[in-house]
Write a protein that binds this DNA or RNA. Structure first.
Length: 458
RNA sequence: CGGGGCGUAGCACAGCCUGGUAGUGCGCUCGGUUUGGGACCGAGAGGUCGGAUGUUCGAAUCAUCUCGCCCCGACCA
């Protein structure tokens, strides 16, 4: 087996797939288009979830859970929504199997057909607004600020781990408001939350934007999004926030009595980010040595590798390093001490680099004698031997520095790959090279269509 | 659904053109030496060559069909 990774510059897809595989993040499952998220990958996702969830709570939202199944009739109620999602829905038509009377195995029991097919949710607006009908009577019930962590299924034609899977994990916020203005404010606020999360936690600079009518969420009046630039020069939509107007309130008859004692339809928003963020995280920072994780999302922030010959040496190193480990833990740093003797140090170095661990410490007998330790940074791949005294504070500072540094690096990359095009020729020329382009648009769908036809820009 | 590529040991692959004892590297097991950037030596275990049919004395190899995976496009968070 080759030890090196494919080069990022040579084959971006292959490089991405290899990182996902070798960093132990996820793998394809036997079910078409679905993925298995492995413990290490899931640990990163959990950190993202926790950070996002805290941000949702801080903005007044509460979590709830709605069913996986959506009756077909629900999906049909909002016309544009129905049309938009119809072609990618998984449908449940039966509730029972039985032994095959003509041989082995099981068959779908033809007598167990459901009266109404159930759709496996591609998104939950319909089930949720059906529930909101009973939850909302008065302006005093508003705003209703709910979020759900769930899995959804969209039967995509072509799938890719984390970036586009048939089933994916996400968070979907669904809010109801008394006024149009308040709902728009919420839509923009949550887009801001996503942008803050992307920048402060993922160290990923994003551009906030407004989607054109043709790219809007099915059933929305306005779709806002954040877009990040990947290292291959392509943009990745990383989060969306929709202003749904009164569309769903009207379809599900959600009316409330306002302060003037008049019946009015509620105003809606919905917003979501998914496991696609994992894909973005990988593509934005990783290099030819593997994954690079921002310290704030790294399940292991610091790994310590003892280097020893004899078991007695290991015991000496253990004794020397244990106080530092305890101190780091008390400072809230996720430390792993890897004294496993199955692998040699060199192997471990390569392995933790592949997994994106931000800081690696190496300590051997030489260090014990000199009261030193070797610090290696994942972001710069640089190494330095420093005194063991005060190492804990130094680590905490360094974690912050790495977080800032990889953000800066990604930011510079984006700046260097953002261009201005003032005419059609410049635009066409640049789009071939990739990157973001600031261009002029007359705002019509015809022009948008023409641009998409003649180039591959979105 | 279109266009390309690939299915041979747990993983990565060679062998196929020109049919004749199923191979290499990594990993795994055992023993020994090693341990500051993916250690080395020795001995082992591990295969319905994706599946079916055909051609042949003989098929991983040739033919037909079939299934699966990956990449590129249309679709999308």
């Amino acid at each position: 087996m080759s030890k090196g990774l494919p080069k990022r510059s040579e084959n971006y897809s292959e490089w991405y797939n290899e990182i996902v595989k070798r960093a132990n993040l996820a793998e394809n499952s036997p079910v078409r288009g679905c993925m298995v998220i492995k413990p290490y990958g899931f640990a990163i996702w959990e950190k993202m979830q926790r950070a996002l969830d805290d941000m949702f709570k801080a903005t007044g939202h509460e979590n709830a859970y709605f069913p996986l199944f959506v009756p077909k009739s629900f999906l049909e109620k909002e016309e544009e929504h129905a049309e938009g999602f119809a072609k990618e829905c998984a449908v449940v038509t039966h509730y029972r199997l039985k032994a095959n009377p003509e041989g082995k195995g099981l068959i779908v029991d033809p007598e167990a057909e459901l009266d109404e097919p159930l759709i496996i949710r591609p998104t939950s607006e319909t089930v949720i607004w059906n529930a909101y009908k009973n939850w909302i009577q008065s302006w005093r019930d508003l705003p209703l600020l709910i979020n759900q962590w769930a899995n959804v299924v969209r039967w995509e034609m072509r799938t890719r781990i984390f970036l586009r899977t048939a089933e994916f994990l996400w968070q979907e916020g669904h809010t109801a408001h008394a006024t149009r203005g308040e709902a728009i404010e919420e839509t923009e606020k949550m887009l801001g939350v996503y942008a803050t999360f992307a920048e402060q936690w993922m160290a990923m600079p994003v551009i906030k934007g407004l989607k054109t009518p043709s790219e809007r969420f099915a059933g929305a009046e306005e779709t806002y999004c954040i877009e990040a630039l990947m290292q291959d020069g392509k943009a990745l939509q990383s989060g969306t926030s929709h202003f749904l107007g009164q569309n769903f309130a009207k379809s599900f008859d959600v009316q409330f009595v306002n302060k003037e004692n008049q019946l009015e339809y509620a105003w809606a928003t919905s917003w979501g980010v998914s496991t696609r963020l994992m894909g973005a995280l990988i593509m934005v920072h990783s290099d030819d040595q593997g994954l690079v994780l921002p310290p704030k999302l790294a399940p292991i922030q610091v790994v310590i590798v003892p280097i020893y010959r004899q078991p007695e040496d290991l015991a000496t190193i253990d004794a020397k390093i244990t106080p530092a480990i305890e101190k780091l833990k008390s400072l809230g740093v996720a430390v792993k001490y890897d004294a496993d003797d199955k692998y040699k140090p060199g192997y471990k170095f390569a392995e933790y680099e592949l997994r994106g661990v931000p800081i690696r410490l190496g300590i051997g007998m030489r260090d014990v004698e000199n009261n030193t330790i070797e610090i290696a940074r994942r972001d710069t791949l640089s190494k330095e031997t420093v005194s063991l005294d005060g190492i804990e504070e130094r680590i905490v500072d360094l974690l912050n520095e790495i977080q800032a540094n990889i953000y800066q690096k990604a930011y510079r990359f984006r700046e260097e790959n953002t261009f201005r095009a003032d005419n059609w020729e410049q635009f066409k020329e640049q789009i071939e090279k990739g990157g973001f382009i600031l261009a002029h648009w007359d705002g019509t769908a015809e022009t948008e269509e023409k641009i998409k036809e003649e180039t591959k820009a979105t």
